[in-house]
Design a protein around this nucleic acid. Sequence first.
DNA 1: ATGGCTACGATCCGTAGA
Length: 254
Amino acid sequence: MKLATWNVNSLKVRLGQLTDWLAQEKPDAVCLQETKLVDGKFPTAELEASGYRASFCGQKTYNGVAIVSPRPLGEVSTGIPGFADEQKRVIAATLDGVRIVCLYAPNGQAVGSEKYDYKLRWYAALRDWLAGELAAHPRLAVLGDLNVAPEERDVHDPKAWEGQVLVSEAERAAFRALLELGLKDSFRLFEQPEKSFSWWDYRMMGFRRNAGLRIDHILLSPQLAAACKTCAIDKAPRRLERPSDHTPVVAEIG
DNA sequence: ATGGCTACGATCCGTAGA
């Protein structure tokens, strides 16, 4: 099973890139973030023409998540139970016995800001929810834009980023709390090129300079991690004209 | 030098992302 996560930064703008990528890579499921579309405007027909269907949960302008698959998704749920949130950041579904959780973590804006507090509260609720999900679903995959670069090696210039949002200690602790549940960072199960990132700032030629961060992740339950064959960042879509600032991360299981 | 792109919805600038 081939699973992927991609923050498309507007599905309307990136739809052609997505359908091309689906045709090329033939994933079994892709978790999308920042679709920025209300459900009524989701491109169901265009995806269907590519042989894919989707479960989605969106809003205007901001956020929005979806899971895209060639096969029917079951037991679709949205949001974090017990965590009231207007922002559409979470959708989950079951495919071939694998529970897939698609996440768009809050950015946090700046350390100490209101949005930063919201990010940490969101992560605390996520942790508590995933603890139960992990117990209920031995085959659990958590994919998404988690908006945390977990270690120094996930940051192009750790000195420049020190203490900033996305790398602050409290955010990294929130990320580690997910690993402490037993989830594995699939990317680190394998040898990887140095300076591997999944996001590059649009400004200052970030991509050309490889001035990026690794903030998009695929976390796997122990059972899925044991069956994981590869995990890689696909930089090709970031080279296209008018790209998303994020690029897909792909894992192959079983 | 605290900017620099991009998307969006509102107009032709402000908000947000990361």
